[in-house]
């Protein structure tokens, strides 16, 4: 891969420390007070804010599950809604 600029990598580089501090860097506690909002900061520095590494087996995407279920509920209720709006009160649309 390209340049490694995860938390350790970028902490070594003065450029990134100055400009990405608004994004909660790893050592946020010591930095937060002094930092200005990132007016011209760098795109793609989210991994400077990593506070812990989560491996494949420790990751349990329960939030994703909840969001997917919410989406499914919205879909279902829109289907039901459509049934009332579009079909009841009109004739059936028949294929063939």
């Amino acid at each position: 891969m390209a340049v490694d600029s995860t938390a350790e990598g970028s902490a070594a580089s003065p450029v990134s420390q100055a400009s990405s501090s608004g994004d909660v860097p790893a050592d946020a506690a010591t930095q937060r007070g002094s930092s200005e909002p990132p007016v011209d900061s760098i795109v793609g520095t989210a991994d400077d804010g990593i506070v812990r590494q989560i491996g494949h087996d420790d990751f349990d995407p329960v939030g994703t599950l909840i969001l997917v279920v919410i989406y499914m509920i919205i879909l279902l209720s829109m289907w039901v809604f459509m049934y009332f709006i579009e079909f009841l009160g009109r004739g059936l649309t028949v294929v063939g």
Partner: peptide, 15 residues
């Protein structure tokens, strides 16, 4: 021109 215009590192997938 900048020394570090953007953070272009892409991490490996979890699996």
């Amino acid at each position: 021109e900048s020394d570090r215009p953007v953070d272009e590192y892409l991490p490996e997938p979890l699996s």
